[in-house]
Design a protein around this nucleic acid. Structure first.
Length: 157
DNA sequence: GCCAACGTTGGC
DNA sequence: GCCAACGTTGGC
């Protein structure tokens, strides 16, 4: 069964445009246990992903990706030159996991966080909740579809 | 740049 | 095990 997710990236680090250019990418560098658990255990090939730009102006959902490879060791944890190097991650028992995602679509009009918060149909969506920092979040199907609807709606209304 | 929210670390 | 200090996230 296809599941739905939201993944955050700072566009200065990696944006939906970068993914469109690259086609696929490793979702590396996640160093949070809860997000790691989701990628290791729950994110499956074929799942769909809302690609979210955090620390952007404005922050919001910029497009869609799909999962093309399931959880496997995040090898950047073993690279001393990598920003996310973790000397405690043992190659024999990897601490951190990642998945691969592929480009699906870049919204012509990204859906700002403000619009997500203002939409009563999206009540309860994790990303709209204050203090919610999880960088890989589950998204309920009806919420995922609603975000797509918002993205397709013309800016004029 | 500010700062609230949250996770992690480390002294005790 | 508690909790203060500290670092990071991420909206504004």
């Amino acid at each position: 069964m296809v599941r739905y997710w939201l993944m955050k990236s700072e566009p200065g680090a990696y944006s939906i445009d970068d993914l469109e250019r690259d086609g696929t990418t490793h979702w590396d560098g996640v160093r949070n246990h809860q997000a790691r658990n989701l990628m290791r255990d729950d994110v499956k090939v074929g799942d769909l992903v809302l690609f979210y730009h955090s620390n952007a102006d404005p922050p919001g959902v910029a497009g869609v990706a799909k999962v093309v490879r399931e959880g496997y060791p995040d090898f950047t944890a073993w690279d001393p030159k990598d920003r996310h190097f973790d000397p405690r991650s043992d190659p024999e028992a990897p601490t951190w996991s990642m998945v691969d995602i592929a480009f699906v679509e870049r919204f012509r009009d990204p859906v700002p966080l403000r619009s997500l918060k203002d939409d009563p149909a999206l009540d309860g969506m994790l990303v709209t909740q204050r203090g919610q920092r999880l960088s890989v979040q589950p998204v309920e199907k009806h919420l995922f579809k609603r975000v797509l609807d918002l993205a397709k709606r013309s800016p004029a209304g």
